[in-house]
Structures are given as C-alpha cells and as structure tokens.
C-alpha cells in the first residue's frame, strides 16, 4: 500500500513541472493567436478584388476572379463573394455569416434559375472553386475556433516567428491540426501547415507582400497554397483594398444576395 502511494506521489511530483509547462504553452499559444486575430479585426467593412490562379500537377493553369465584401458584426463577420470569372459562373454569389461562437451559415445564389440555396457546413472544408484553398482557409477563422499550444520560435526570413499548433474545435473541419507561424513584430500569420485526418502533412500556406492599409490594417497581397499530396497549387492575388465603405448588415442579407452584383 505504502509502495503504491509513494509511486503515485512520485508520478504526481514528476508531472508537476510538465503540467505547469503545458499550461504555459497553452496560454502563450492562445495569446499569440489572439494577437494575430486582433491584427485582422477592427476594419469595420471592406471590399477587395481577388484573383485565384490554379496550377495543376502537370502545370495546367486556370484562373478565377471574384469580389469579396466583408462587414464586422458584434458576433462575428459577414462576407459576400461575387464571381466574375469563369464566365459560366459569372453572377454567382456566396453569402457567409461567420460567428465567433456559433455555427457558420452559408447561402449560394445561382443566377441562371434565380435560386438561393442554403449549403451544408462541411462544404467549407472541400476545395473552394476547384482550388487548393478550402473556404475555411480563405476566410480567416476567428481565434475562438481553435485550441492552441505554443511550440517554439524560429527564424522566418528576416523576422522571428512563433510556431503555434492549433486544433480546430469544429468537428466539420477538414483538418486534425495546423501549425501557424506568427511573426513576433506585427503578429501577422506568415505560414500555416495543414494536417489531414490521417495526421499527414497536406498543405502549406504562405502569405507574402504584406501592405499596411489606412495606416493600420496589414494584409498580404499574395497568398500561396501548396498541396503536398496532389502536387497542385493555388495563388491568391488580393487587389484594390477598400475600407470604410459604409456597408451595413442590410448588404449581407438573403435579399442582398439576390441582388448581388
């Protein structure tokens, strides 16, 4: 009996520093993620043009052009995407209501038959418009949607990045975990690696050409997603950033989706 107790005690004592260290890495990871999230918020509303360049495994290419309007709300963010090319889907639009705490909702507008469809949650983990980005990679998720653990610091270019592991809380996410490189200077997300349900490395995301808009909003002008399993990649080029357009929530209703242009 005494032996068992001693052993238990020994284990408990041995675990103490580990427990504390664990709590530390969780807290630091959370703080870093929160700082990175804060960099993307406070913009009120925005409109930006997006060009997607898709590169297939044997080098074939395709491109898509769309416009993205966003609005910050008390509980999250609304986005409305309107497609311009390919021309057979011109006029299609996707409305998303993304929430910090609740389930996201999405509606798709099909102009040929003037139909609005509410689409399922897992559609956001599939390839978006045939690209290597899933919808959940494209619209920066709120930091509340993951749990975190700080791993280590590492040089990233001329900067120092903190590597944070994040695990999606959403059971419909297509990933088991992600590793995020957040720079120590501006707290911008420079790189993300994604691990699939079999725990193997699926994709690497890199953001570059950061520009500061309106003197405060840092945004990357180029994003790249490389899929290691199928050897395809997608480049996103963000242009014509506009902030403070005076959009309001009426511009993000199902009625607004019907008249999106």
């Amino acid at each position: 009996m005494r032996v068992v107790l001693s052993v238990l005690l020994l284990i408990a004592v041995a675990c103490l520093p580990f427990q504390a260290a664990h709590a530390d890495t969780v807290a630091e990871g959370h703080a870093l993620a929160k700082a990175a999230d804060a960099q993307l918020r406070g913009y009120v509303d925005s409109q930006v043009s997006l060009t997607m360049e898709l590169v297939g495994p044997s080098g074939q290419t395709a491109s898509r052009a769309l416009r993205v309007r966003s609005l910050e709300t008390d509980s999250g963010e609304y986005t409305l995407m309107v497609f311009d090319t390919p021309r057979d889907v011109a006029g299609s639009a996707l409305l998303s209501h993304n929430f910090r705490e609740a389930d996201d909702q999405q509606w798709l507008y099909l102009p040929a038959i003037r139909r609005v469809k509410q689409i399922g949650a897992r559609d956001k983990s599939g390839p978006f418009m045939g690209s290597e980005f899933a919808f959940e990679d494209l619209v920066t998720p709120f930091y509340e949607k993951f749990s975190y653990r700080y791993e280590q610091d590492e040089a990233c270019g001329e900067l120092t990045c903190a590597i944070v592991e994040r695990i999606p809380r959403d059971p419909h996410s297509g990933y088991t975990r992600q590793r995020v490189w957040i720079d120590r200077e501006h707290h911008l997300i420079r790189q993300v690696t994604y691990y699939d349900r079999r725990e193997t490395l699926l994709k690497t995301y890199t953001a570059s050409d950061f520009e500061q808009h309106e003197g405060r909003h840092w945004r990357p002008a180029t994003m790249r997603m490389e899929n290691h399993q199928n050897r395809r990649q997608t480049r996103l080029l963000w242009q014509d950033f506009q902030f403070g357009l005076g959009l309001d929530s009426r511009d993000f209703t199902q009625n607004a989706l019907l008249r999106a242009r």
């Binding site: 509410q118 689409i119 399922g120 949650a121 897992r122 419909h172």
Partner: peptide, 9 residues
C-alpha cells in the same frame, strides 16, 4: 423547410 445539420440536409 430545410434543416441543415452538418453534411446532412
């Protein structure tokens, strides 16, 4: 009526 439950509508 549509009820959306993840992958199931």
């Amino acid at each position: 009526l549509q009820v959306t439950q993840g992958d199931l509508l």
